[in-house]
Design a binder for these strands. Structure first.
Lengths: 139, 139
DNA sequence: ATAATATTGTTATGTTATAACGTATATATC
DNA sequence: GATATATACGTTATAACATAACAATATTAT
């Protein structure tokens, strides 16, 4: 399924970003490129997310490009480094199983699942002593 | 640790609610009781959440009282019924382990973790045939 | 070609959350 | 008790995030 010009542009900006971007941050980087209002960004994001090409991080109100070919897998967990803003997109079968069993035991029929783990990535942990570390994003 | 009057009131409203409440919904129910601005609600929520007496549901921008005595356990997952709005607060050691192994393998040092599972609870699933079901909250 | 579907740009508005300020009220420490 | 220190308070204003509604255009299928 082909993307429209606007959807392409939003995806490109997300892909070249080093950290998750909010909708208004995206808009800023796209203004002068035909984008002039938040609606346009949200619309493109909506399509990208439905196609598994981008993800919304609920705890940050921000968006990232999917790192995988396409994300139509089961459960995806996000490891979010509060220090450098880096996102790791984790797919783990043991985690999926645990979740599956847990909800099955409760007779709960799961739709979509959000998992976001805040913390410190290995690089930041080794680069900086605990005391001098500063949070770039909300914990 | 004792709660102030305002914090008590917010907690009471949350406890007597049947579904998660947004900050402005809380404010509405508390106006005429000394509350006149969102800041007051957010401040009380902040304390309640830090003390493990309430939780924020990131996918709903809403708040619930903790169902446990006090929630200073490890990871808590929320099963959110999109049909009736009911919240189930799940603590599962297998899930915690899976998460623990997963991040350990990546040398990620976890702080707080958010897990929210949208879907349909058992009551709603049996009460209504799939086709006639309507979503009360976002999926 | 024509109908049905999706996307576009624009304007306006709704919803959620925080900043900044001065005041008040507790909680310790002396 | 007096004094410092921490929190909590109410108020006003504004920031940040997201959607509604509309008319126009472009795409796709029949």
């Amino acid at each position: 399924m082909p993307l429209t010009a606007n959807q392409q542009r939003v995806l490109e900006v997300l892909r070249s970003a080093e950290a998750p971007l909010g909708a208004y941050a995206l808009l800023e980087r796209l203004s002068g490129d035909g984008f002039s209002a938040p609606t346009q960004v949200y619309r493109a994001l909506d399509v990208l997310i439905r196609h598994g090409l981008a993800h919304r991080l609920e705890t940050l109100n921000a968006y990232v490009a999917c790192r995988h070919k396409e994300c139509r897998h089961g459960v995806t967990a996000f490891a979010i480094c509060d220090d450098c803003g880096n996102i790791d997109e984790l797919i783990d079968s043991a985690l999926s199983s645990s979740l599956g069993y847990m909800v099955e035991r409760r007779d709960f029929s799961p739709g979509s699942t959000t998992i976001e783990i805040h913390g410190t990535c290995s690089q930041c942990a080794s680069a900086l002593p605990e005391s001098t570390r500063h949070s770039r994003v909300k914990p």
